[in-house]
Design a protein around this nucleic acid. Structure first.
Length: 561
RNA sequence: GCCGUUGUAGCUCAGUCGGAAGAGCGUUUGCCUCCUAAGCGAAAGGUCGCAGGUUCGAUCCCUGCCAGCGGCGCCA
């Protein structure tokens, strides 16, 4: 509808050009917005103010000239000039409800686009090392990352979900040593407890599973424990598999699935790290200093150069990161997006610098990043900091156990990634309109309930039966709801374009509010059969929008509550 | 000190291309004989952190400052 109005305005603008009121040349596409205040009509444009200077006349005068040249059309029934020069459009009744028919014919496809046209995008997220259960920060990453993937899929992209982790290195050694300590009945308070050991309760579980020679099957590996308390290599391999499996179970419970698990160690066995370092040296972006090898990241905007190879010989962490991202580039993805905690912010400059220094034709701002801020968990007005299982942090599993998958996913997605998030357990558990998850799901369930009742009453009806009677809808609550529904495609494309999944969560709350207001003000099932069918069409269209939106958030749409 | 991010109603937070200040909760308060009250309505509540700049117009863009958070290692 907006596009049609834009087209009409453009016709008027070119008419003004031929009349010499406006100079010849390209005009910017007019900006048309939905109004917030119903007194301002349905749509409004600022075009008269924007072009006032070029026309050399006051905005309100230009607005009148523009209105005078509007071509005849069935959509706009009234135009007003308001304020400094806004033009407010009042649209015909029929145009407001045209969206209902569009939704009903598209059904669960309403909101989809082909923008991505099957191009491949790789999204890396979570990427937790297998040294403990996933914490709430990983949960936020999982919720945002997966919802981004669903948004991109919805927009026609072919999405590859990837999880990167390190199964070697110091952290993993510490993990193995911690498990071995538990195998040997050493306590964290003992002197023999490994320095930087992991103290969470889960380490004991790993140890006892190891001793009972279990086999663990994770998504990307399977390891059988020998039970040999002195076989540190086996302890390590088993521990990694055990924790990967636990993470898999948490992610599965969260509705998150990966196409690929990428091992940092594979970059060494494939010689990718070696080749990366050789290229950087060959391209003369490195130098030796203090017995270490440095990368001139300052050539690419970093505030100081970074060590690549340490004095004792090993590489610093960002070297395999650069190799990994070069590998992504080689795999030919159209886009690569990394979702990670903002505490890893400083790696962005380094990774991008390393990629530039490889001189492989990688664009400067590549890859894209979505960073999320920290999560604080509150319960009974106090911050929750500990969990029994992990010790020093609250786990994703804790949240799912406390408030369920739907609420966890919704709350972790509903805030802008750039904002710090307070996860209020009491709010997520409350079953009232202060809890947006229930509020939205309840709207969906209510519609389903009305549909069941309608079936009882009409025996046979189809949501499309009401389409021919949409003209009977003339109540403000009905218009307001239809307007909200019509925004869905724009909300999705905006959220996809800006990589901001929270927009979907907020939008659904608005739609649910519009529906509840409508529901409360008017009986859907009325004595008037035609009006009933029209309202059922509107309600069914609402159901599609809510269900399609919740699907993108990974939240269920219950038919009854 | 440097980098990033945040600062909007009492609280938690939206606010897209610069265009007419928003939601929920909380407070005061009205609505179930009626399709699910897990719901709806009304009232009150604002110096959009501060100061400049650009602009016809700034919560939005730019500069500086203040405050919170995160990062600043030859840890990952």
């Amino acid at each position: 509808m907006k596009d049609q109005v834009i087209g009409i305005i453009e016709q008027s603008l070119s008419a003004l050009q031929s009349l010499g009121v406006l100079p010849e040349g390209d005009m910017p596409s007019p900006q048309v917005d939905h109004t917030r205040d119903p007194n301002h009509g349905d749509l409004a444009t600022n075009v008269a103010m924007a072009l006032a200077k070029r026309a050399g006349m006051p905005p309100r005068e230009l607005a009148q000239a523009l209105i005078d040249q509007l071509p005849a059309n069935p959509i706009i029934i009234q135009c007003d000039i308001a304020g400094p020069g806004f033009i407010n459009f009042h649209l015909s009744q029929a145009s407001n409800f045209a969206v209902v028919e569009t939704i009903l014919s598209a059904g669960e496809h309403f909101g989809r686009s082909t923008e991505g046209s099957g191009k491949r995008v790789q999204v890396e997220f979570v990427s937790a090392n297998p040294t403990g259960p996933l914490h709430v920060g990983h949960g936020r990453g999982a919720a945002i990352g997966d919802t981004l993937c669903r948004l991109l899929e919805n927009a026609g992209w072919s999405v590859h979900r990837e999880f990167y982790y390190n199964d070697a290195g110091q952290q993993i050694t510490n993990l193995a040593l911690s498990v071995k300590a538990r195998i040997d009945n050493v306590e964290p308070s003992d002197e023999a407890w490994p320095k930087d050991g992991y103290q969470g309760a889960y380490i004991k579980d790993v140890a006892s599973a190891y001793l009972s020679r279990q086999t663990v099957d994770a998504a990307d590996r399977s390891v059988t424990a020998s039970g040999d308390a002195d076989d540190l290599a086996n302890i390590q391999a088993f521990s990694v598999a055990w924790l990967r499996r636990e993470q898999d179970e948490d992610l599965k419970a969260f509705g998150v699935d990966f196409d690929q698990y990428f091992l940092e160690s594979s970059l060494y066995t494939s010689k990718s790290v070696e080749r990366t370092v050789e290229s950087l040296i060959a391209n003369q972006f490195t130098y030796e200093k203090d017995d270490a090898l440095w990368l001139k990241t300052t050539d690419f905007g970093d505030d100081k150069d970074r060590v690549m190879r340490k004095r004792e010989g090993g590489y610093t962490y960002f070297v395999p990161d650069v190799a990994y991202h070069h590998n992504k580039w080689d795999r030919g993805f159209e886009r690569v997006i990394n979702e990670q905690g903002a505490d890893h912010h400083s790696t962005i400059t380094r990774v991008r610098a390393g990629l530039q220094a490889l001189e492989s034709g990688i664009p400067q701002g590549w890859p894209e990043y979505v960073l999320h801020q920290m999560v604080t968990v509150m319960r009974d007005g106090d911050e929750v900091k500990l969990s029994k299982r992990a010790g020093s942090y609250v786990t994703l599993r804790d949240l799912i156990d406390w408030v369920g998958r739907d609420a966890t996913r919704y709350f972790l997605t509903a805030r802008a990634a750039t904002s710090q998030l307070t996860f209020d357990i009491d709010l997520a558990l409350s079953k009232s309109n202060e809890n947006p998850v229930y509020y939205i799901q309840y709207a969906h369930a209510r519609i389903c309930s009305v549909q069941r009742r309608a079936t009882d009453q009409f025996e046979q009806w189809s949501s499309s039966d009401g389409v021919q009677h949409l003209a009977l809808l003339d109540q403000p609550e009905e218009q307001s709801l239809a307007l909200a529904l019509s925004k869905f495609p724009d909300v999705l494309s905006g959220a996809t374009k800006r990589l901001e999944p929270h927009a979907v969560a907020n939008y659904l709350r608005d739609v649910a509010a519009e529906f509840h207001s409508f529901y409360n003000a008017h009986k859907i099932i009325d004595d008037n059969a035609e009006l009933t069918l029209a309202r059922l069409s509107l309600a069914t269209a609402t159901r599609y929008v809510i269900a399609n939106g919740l699907r993108i958030l990974g939240v269920s749409a219950p038919e009854a509550m």
